[in-house]
Design a protein around this nucleic acid. Sequence first.
DNA 1: TTTATTTACGATATCGTTTTCGTGTAATTT
DNA 2: AAATTACACGAAAACGATATCGTAAATAAA
Lengths: 339, 339
Amino acid sequence: MSKINLKDLAKALNISVSTVSKALRDSYEISSETKKKVIEKAQQLGYNPNPYAGFLRNNKSKTIAILVPELTNNYFIQAISGAETIAQENGYHILIYTTNDDREKEVSILNHLNNGRVDGVLVSISSNTSQYDHINDLIRNGIPIVFFDRICHEIETAKVTTNDFASGFTATEHLISTGCKRIAYLSISELLSIDNKRKQGYLEALNKHDINFNKDLVVQCNDDEKLNADKIKKLLTGKNKPDAIFACVEKLALTTYHVCKDLKINIPRDLKIISFSNLRTADLLSPSLTTITQPAFDIGKEAASILFKYLSKRKSLIPNQNIVVNSKLTVRDSTNPNL
Amino acid sequence: MSKINLKDLAKALNISVSTVSKALRDSYEISSETKKKVIEKAQQLGYNPNPYAGFLRNNKSKTIAILVPELTNNYFIQAISGAETIAQENGYHILIYTTNDDREKEVSILNHLNNGRVDGVLVSISSNTSQYDHINDLIRNGIPIVFFDRICHEIETAKVTTNDFASGFTATEHLISTGCKRIAYLSISELLSIDNKRKQGYLEALNKHDINFNKDLVVQCNDDEKLNADKIKKLLTGKNKPDAIFACVEKLALTTYHVCKDLKINIPRDLKIISFSNLRTADLLSPSLTTITQPAFDIGKEAASILFKYLSKRKSLIPNQNIVVNSKLTVRDSTNPNL
DNA sequence: TTTATTTACGATATCGTTTTCGTGTAATTT
DNA sequence: AAATTACACGAAAACGATATCGTAAATAAA
């Protein structure tokens, strides 16, 4: 009943293992009658090939890994979901790993993957990563990598991101257009290129509109929610308070909402907020949140597509390229000057 | 540089392959000096065992699959995240699959897994599943299954859920306590045991408080958001409107919020809402949403733990058992009678 | 000293495929 | 009729690690 292998099938048909194998793989060497017989018998006995035998033989596993800092994050989930869609279409399987923004873990997981377990990897690096030996090792071993969102510029391969600079610029300019002059920027990590680019956009917009940059309005946050809340609270209660906040990531916008609730600061009257976010409930928040929304699902699809393209070509060296998918500004009440 | 295998290692050390293998697996047959030498050399040459060779030989892959209806769902993501935590602790890898609530896909994926690719499976079935041959096939083949949330009672194995009946009862009684008499129940699928149990709790609470059950107040929804919105709109504009809604799943509560926004129905004054939900932003919604929150992360951890327990015992037949992790009612403004 | 036991290692079969060769028969060409 | 070519299949060697044997040397027991 169970565990039928090629040998069993061959015995049942009174032909050789190799013939059965070839028949099932539709080889030209096998006559169509034999093929038919084999396929029928396979169906009948419920033959299911052992994947690992094939992987071992072929040195290909039709499996990729996706490595993200965390799962409980709308952006990453949508990206993974997009990648999964493409994977199913191409018959690929997906292994999921999270680093919790821990560099040690990232290194350990990538080293673990450096042995042929996967044909390729989709990575969004953890924010405190700044050295890339573990990633280069993979590439050197012929395991291609595609970065998405949190990318490494230093590594030559495909990188899929959104237009972070332009979006940061747009977001800031939007705040300026509502009359804001003292715009704070909430940063999540100085080591993250997406963060830097968004900040560059922010600075450029300030510059264009002749607003002096005040470095006290850039708040360096991290993964500690409590600490972030404290920093934001200090920002909003100190002298020279901002009249707007541009949150680099969703998490910081939500923390800001909570802080404002605590401090009874009225959004958007006292403080306007805009954020990069993939929150599905952005329009149901109180007040609804103005967002720069990244096409996360498409970014995931795109990243997976590129990887599969090179895998199917049996090319493991992916040439350096930057794929940019544009984000979209959705204006809602958190930046409404008339409330 | 790359692709060092046992043979290479053995050659470099001038000892046999079997000795190297045993040394690396810390076998009692090998002297500690030899072990040290082997381990050193392995490190030096960057030896990384080919996983598939071992999987093939041992018929174990230290890999499990998680099958969920969808990824863009806070509950499933938290559960997966919990399972991933346990998996990392136990050195297991996780393959992710989604069915999009499509029975065909569910069958196809499970059949595909029925070949030793994974050692075990964590499943939340798709809502329209009602026959279970594909699942029994797996178990018969020695691949253990643990259900979480969307379970199959008909199959003898471990099932991890929340206390759906009691929670449905609590939710309904809470609405009653705020003065509601015409409480609608938004159902997602009649074939889903969690849905039925929650509804049973709802009915029981109505019964206890001598409220007549009106079957027009049970709205049968599905995966089509547009259709659901129409049904809810009809419910809220027809005669005999409800004064409260109990949404069986988060998605339906959000749809209700949108419909209310459209119809300018004031929550909670005109309509109170409670929902099963794992939304992190429940308290930031307008109004904040009263929820029954499932300990999704813990459910994922629990499900994975049970699976790994039996896998480590090399027992593939998991005895029938129901693990129940209690949900928690968090009262917020959407059911506040004083607003 | 002889026998039994432990210690440390090597040769080899095995897991289930895929694929390269080799080979016998039939069909085609000279 | 002899030689060539196509066709359909089988034998066997991989892929890389594991584990069961077997065995030589060293130690302990007789």
